Amino acid sequence: MVVNVFISAVTTDTLSRKEAVAWVNNLLKSHFTKVEEMASGAAYCQLTHLLFANSINLRKVKFNPRSEPDILTNWKVLTTAWKDLGIDKPVDVEKMKKAKFQDNMEFLQWFYKFFNANLVGDAEDYDAVGARFNEDLPALKGSSGARPAVAAVRPTAAPVAKPKAVAPAAAPNAAAKASVAPTVRNGTRPAPATSAGTRRSEPSQNEELLKQEIEKQKSLATDWETMAKEMESEREFYYSMLQRVEGLVHEAEELKSTTIDVEALKAVLYQSNEEGEHEVEATENGADSSQLRDALQANLDDTDTF
């Protein structure tokens, strides 16, 4: 018997973004790095297979879809199985397949609660990798593709080596010249030819340029990584703020009140970011206040589907 659950964006068992990804990876022995990757629907198919044995034929699931039709196939397989099981959760596939963070995060929060409400036995006994036929989820980048190219070059290398066998014939002449050169002055060998010296200096210059380019790219990568972390932190901060405001709204609804505690609302709106990198500006900045109000209203509208 399926236990259907309903969830708002604010609950006591809400997971953070990192906790949600870690939870999925632990159950499926996968290596997701962000919530948006759940948009393919493949992970939900296997989690349903884990929860309700033989409820889904995993051979129909595209664990690493290459196109939008593959993604739609995964969601169709999932929703069909859910209908047969009696799960009445509506799924907005058009929103999910766009891989937007908020849509996928809210859906994953719901599924986390649904999973815990219906889990029977120990999930650790489930062979996740074997169940999906030893396929990586998602596929590791750069894990294959270079080996065939190397194998293709080797057969052509053997014929080329045969003409080189003639090269030793020229060696006696070079050896004769070399045997005369050492007796030029005081029985010592002369300095190497200038061409050799030039060849040695060129690699050192190239190495220096390569090192400079590597350092430049490392610096750029560090800047981008820092910028990405700051943006991620800010997004999490404002999303958390919306959740707390929504909590105040739900609290007012439960008390059947038509007003919200102004002081409590101000405490949420003016609270600083946990990492101390971003702070909410005062309400005299009209443009920022207007954007915040629009974001709050949009978030409240989205909760109607849950």
Rank of each mutant, 00 (worst) to 15 (best):
E207T: 08
L220T: 13
D223I: 11
K218R: 04
E208K: 07
S204P: 00
S233C: 03
S233Y: 01
L220I: 13
E202C: 07
T226I: 07
W224L: 11
E230P: 02
T222Y: 04
E230L: 14
E232P: 00
I214W: 01
K229H: 05
E207C: 09
E232F: 06
I214N: 01
D223F: 06
I214Y: 01
I214G: 01
E213H: 11
P203E: 01
E213L: 10
E234N: 09
M227A: 14
E207A: 15
T222F: 04
E207R: 08
E215W: 02
A228K: 07
E202A: 15
Q217T: 09
D223A: 14
M227V: 12
N206P: 00
K229L: 01
I214A: 02
Q212W: 06
M227Q: 12
W224N: 13
E202V: 05
W224K: 14
W224Y: 15
D223C: 07
S219V: 00
L209R: 13
E234Y: 06
Q212A: 13
P203H: 00
K211W: 05
S219Y: 05
I214S: 00
I214M: 03
L210A: 12
E234L: 03
S201N: 10
L220P: 00
S204E: 15
E215D: 08
E207V: 08
W224I: 09
K218Q: 08
Q217Y: 09
L210T: 14
W224T: 12
N206I: 12
L209G: 12
K218Y: 03
S219M: 05
S201P: 05
Q217A: 13
T222E: 05
A221E: 03
T226D: 00
E207G: 13
N206S: 10
E202I: 03
D223L: 09
E208A: 15
E207F: 08
K218W: 03
M231L: 15
D223Q: 10
K211E: 02
S219K: 04
Q205A: 11
E202Q: 05
W224A: 14
A221N: 07
S204G: 09
E234G: 01
M231C: 10
T226N: 04
E208S: 10
E230D: 14
K216L: 04
E232D: 09
W224E: 11
K216T: 08
